[in-house]
Design a protein around this nucleic acid. Structure first.
Lengths: 127, 127, 127, 127
DNA sequence: GTGGTCTAGACCACT
DNA sequence: GTGGTCTAGACCACT
């Protein structure tokens, strides 16, 4: 999981994004356990409290649930909702970019070009 | 100009983004003066200090410059630089969305669909 | 016996509450033996240590007592004490609800209405 | 606001309960500001982080909203929801008490007596 | 070992 | 001064 400490997006939300994406991608499946607070904290080089805040966010969303002394688990119904949630986030992000372009008077055609360039530049093999 | 007080992006950067987009769009042209601190502060419902910080940012970037006692003006070369800056911001935004999609295992095709949907949904007439 | 793992009331106290209520209701009578640690642990899906703690609590209260190598038994005077203890717990619970209502400016009449509604909604046949 | 440090209910939830009740009671009205993190922390003798967690809970509920640098305010629509929320909490509490009574084989009549006793004992003048 | 609460204290953005 | 994030570290309940 990638954390950008210079981003204005709080670390705990970046972590929540990462877990959400991983569940959406099927890396963690319904009923399966997630990395423990402490192990993930070591993994992303962050204080356990910050990971806790990230997980808390996802528990409230209904994506995961916690069992004291046992661990954190992907909710049976939660995985599907992670997919749609991820889609919404992506759409929201694209719309923000597009709105910025609109404000700068940029035509759709140019924005499509930029988008295709972004797809190419972030390609990590097969897509 | 749209300010989202709940966004984690600092308000002064949101204001700078807005000015930059307006310059790129030709709303403020090279040599023209920009709104005063106080008028813009009232406009976006924010403390003048915050607008000051936004203008500082843009002066540092070279997009605008200050004439003591006269106000702030758009740099001659500023308009072009605003264009490229806006492009970079947009590209950055798209790449963020794409990275989220990749993390969730979403194929390019689906992301293109979402992008086109976003273009359509944010259309405000002719584009 | 109902255990709510999401409640902030420790599980061992929830188990003790359950046993106490069962003794008060005459399900376990004075002199009779109680379920073994392991059987109750399996029953409520909990670690035997947690059941142990619940029994410890009840022994301390004087509701039950242990015969080494034989098991746990309901105290002769225990049944009566369970009755009064259950009454205290219930009273305490009602008072908590009433205090919340008072804090929200709710008149007694409305609280009585809510109480009667609760009695009705939780009715499981004859009461 | 009363905090019981011996309760198993976390302090931050006790604080949230208190604020919710105060809004329901009309002590804080829609649009009005709430005590600041620091002042409330001093008031209830608790760490500001704990108050923060309580307010965070209420922000998520939609009862209040926060403005960075300005303070916390009661949501226009939130006040009404506080009333119903308070009612639900009270009902939930009563039902818990009643369920305990049922488990102990207590008849409705006796529970009504206990309830009336509780109303009397917690009376603080006119109700 | 695992989740959850709490304190103490630093630092940031905004008013 | 006001809300918000983060670290470091203690302590609790449960496995």
């Amino acid at each position: 999981m990638q954390i950008d400490p210079r981003s204005h997006r709080p670390i705990y939300l970046q972590i929540a994004d990462g877990i959400r994406a991983a569940v959406a991608a099927g890396i963690y499946r319904p009923g399966e356990s997630l990395p423990s607070l402490r192990s993930l904290a070591i993994d992303v080089q962050v204080n356990p409290n910050t990971v806790q805040k990230a997980y808390d966010e996802l528990v409230r969303e209904g994506l995961i649930f916690a069992r004291r002394g046992k661990g954190l688990f992907v909710d049976e119904q939660g995985a599907a909702s992670a997919q749609t949630h991820a889609q919404n986030v992506i759409r929201q992000t694209f719309e923000n970019g597009i709105r910025t372009g609109r404000a700068a008077g940029m035509p759709n055609k140019q924005m499509r070009n930029i988008f295709e360039g972004s797809l190419r530049d972030t390609a990590d093999g097969e897509n």
